[in-house]
Structure formats: structure tokens, C-alpha cells
């Protein structure tokens, strides 16, 4: 198993959410849910991140910001759309400044429903995203594949 899967780092960006999902994302990291004990770290730097958690719908002003964060993340990377707004625009889909869900701008791998999404479902979404991350890692050309060395040594080979 790849080391990446064991300690993924995530970055969170608030698209145009009402804050409900954002504080639930943070609640996942703090005591009670505490995913940090599994090595999941909320980083502020896109270049450190493996998983992109996007809350809220995308609008005209933040589409470039969202795209920019995504582009800066190294491969392999996964996008998790947290909450119904990031999924489809939710209750705000008819507002004049809403473009729609996160998939209008980014390739979304996992959708987490809910308004607001509960910490349990966010954690579940991230766990599902880890499987996608592993799949993407395997699909990368061998030279770019991170964890190649660890994998080889785990199999007893000489890397």
C-alpha cells in the first residue's frame, strides 16, 4: 500500500458557501472527530495538498481562484465537493451570481451531499477520495509515481 494513502494532506477553499460546511470541515479536524490522528492535515498551501475540499457553489469571481488552487496541486490529486451547494448549487442555484456546482470548473471525484454536510459524511467522502487518489497514483507513469520506492521495498525488492 502506498504511503500517500496513509497521510493525505488536504486544502479547503470556501467557494460561496454559507459557512455551514466550512465549520464542519474544520470540525472534522478538531477533537470529537479528530482526523488529524490519522495524519490528515489541513494545509493552507495548495502545493502541499493531495485532496481539495471545495465547499459552496462556484461564482464568476472565484472560478479563477478555484482553478488556480487546483492547478497548483501536484499530481495525483482528488477533488471532493462538500455539501449540496458544491454539488449542484443547492438552495442558491437560482441566485443571479451562482454558476453552479464545483464540477462547472473542476473535475470532481467525490460528491458529499448534505446541507450542511455532517462531519461523518465529510470523513466518509475523504475516505472514498483516498481510493480514487490511489487509483490515480497507479495510473501515473512510473517515474512520476510517488511512493514507488516505498512500494518496491515493501515487496522486498531493491529500489
Amino acid at each position: 500500500m502506498a504511503f500517500l494513502k496513509r497521510s493525505p494532506w488536504m486544502i479547503h477553499y470556501d467557494g460561496s458557501s454559507c459557512n455551514g460546511c466550512d465549520i464542519e470541515v474544520l470540525a472534522c479536524l478538531t477533537p470529537v472527530y479528530d482526523v488529524e490522528r490519522f495524519g490528515i492535515v489541513n494545509t493552507g498551501n495548495p502545493k502541499h495538498a493531495d485532496i481539495f475540499l471545495l465547499t459552496g457553489a462556484v461564482n464568476e469571481q472565484n472560478r479563477e481562484v478555484v482553478r488556480n488552487i487546483y492547478d497548483q496541486m501536484p499530481e495525483p490529486k482528488v477533488v471532493v465537493a462538500v455539501g449540496i451547494c458544491a454539488t449542484s448549487g443547492g438552495i442558491f442555484r437560482e441566485c443571479y451570481n451562482i454558476l453552479g456546482g464545483a464540477d462547472k470548473v473542476l473535475p470532481v471525484d467525490v460528491y458529499v451531499p448534505g446541507c450542511a454536510a455532517r462531519p461523518e459524511s465529510i470523513i466518509d467522502g475523504v475516505v472514498k477520495a483516498l481510493a480514487v487518489l490511489e487509483e490515480k497514483r497507479r495510473a501515473l507513469p512510473p517515474r512520476a509515481r510517488r511512493g514507488r520506492r516505498a512500494e518496491a521495498s515493501a515487496q522486498g525488492g531493491n529500489a
Partner: peptide
């Protein structure tokens, strides 16, 4: 500002 402007005040008309 304006990164999360949704325009929900106008949604009241719908």
C-alpha cells in the same frame, strides 16, 4: 470582497 456573493436578497422574488 465579492468572492462569495450569491445574490440571495433577490431570490426573495422567486
Amino acid at each position: 470582497i465579492g468572492f462569495i456573493h450569491r445574490g440571495l436578497e433577490k431570490l426573495v422574488e422567486k
